[in-house]
């Protein structure tokens, strides 16, 4: 461990994008990073091994929640002060890392989310995606009284308290919105800062339109039940 900041890169079948993402991360030697290979069935594991990329390979697929939680547990074991989640598919721009870390320290919040929508940015998502985001935005305002313009963004930095929490308790699937609701309800400070996002470099979104209804219903249900208990 050379840094007190760990970048967690969950990767499931990302053979096309993983090298590019890691090469960009290597431009920032001041941060440690670890790729969580979530039981990929393509060449992701092989690529990670042959290129000597720091990684943890889950023997079976746990899904996004279990993979990300592995990263948080690793961060807790390594006594990192901050952990940053960054997608392997190239959507999240490592150029924003400095900005995320600086803002996190300046504002002294518990979780800082990189938002595409805080100011006008180049991001253009599908209509389903944007409708979902608007809905979650409304849901979070109702449940937790926080204004989050980009609740499904997986580009986020958390402090040590939240690392500890996530290491013990992290939702199995569709975790992004649910954890904001929970953290905010329990009095943790959750804020946003502007980032740029790219179109994905390869791979497929985990959210297909047919799954989005289930996604919205599930998140609503759990955010309500688990935030108030």
């Amino acid at each position: 461990m050379t840094s007190n900041i760990l970048i967690i890169v969950p990767a499931y079948n990302e053979e096309q994008a993983i090298i590019g993402t890691v090469q960009q991360l290597q431009q920032f030697p001041e941060y440690d990073y670890v790729v969580i290979n979530d039981g990929s069935t393509d060449r992701t594991k092989e690529i990670l091994e042959t290129n000597n990329i720091p990684h943890i390979s889950l023997p079976v697929n746990l899904g996004i929640g279990g993979a990300v939680q592995t990263g948080y547990r690793y961060a807790e074991r390594g006594h990192y002060d901050y952990a940053i989640q960054l997608d392997a598919d190239g959507q999240h721009n490592p150029e924003d890392l400095h900005h995320l870390v600086a803002e996190m320290k300046r504002r002294d919040v518990d979780m800082l989310i990189g938002s595409r929508f805080l100011e006008k940015s180049n991001y253009k998502g599908s209509l389903t995606r944007r409708t979902g985001i608007l809905y979650f935005n409304y849901l979070l305002r109702m449940i937790s009284r926080v204004k989050i313009t980009d609740p499904t963004s997986g580009y986020r930095i958390v402090n040590r308290n939240v690392i500890k929490w996530f290491a013990n308790d992290y939702p199995v699937d569709y975790p992004e919105v649910e954890v904001i609701a929970k953290l905010a309800r329990k009095g943790y400070k959750v804020e946003e800062t502007k980032v740029e996002m790219n179109a994905r470099q390869g791979g497929e979104s985990s959210i297909t339109p047919s799954k989005s209804l289930y996604y919205m219903a599930k998140v609503t249900f759990f955010s309500l039940i688990r935030s108030y208990t």
């Binding site: 990684h55 943890i56 390979s57 889950l58 023997p59 079976v60 746990l62 279990g66 939680q69 592995t70 547990r73 690793y74 074991r77």
Partner: peptide, 13 residues
């Protein structure tokens, strides 16, 4: 099982 899988992965690393 999830905890075990994570522990196995940590040990492998």
């Amino acid at each position: 099982i999830k905890l075990l899988i994570q522990e196995v992965a940590f040990l492998q690393k």
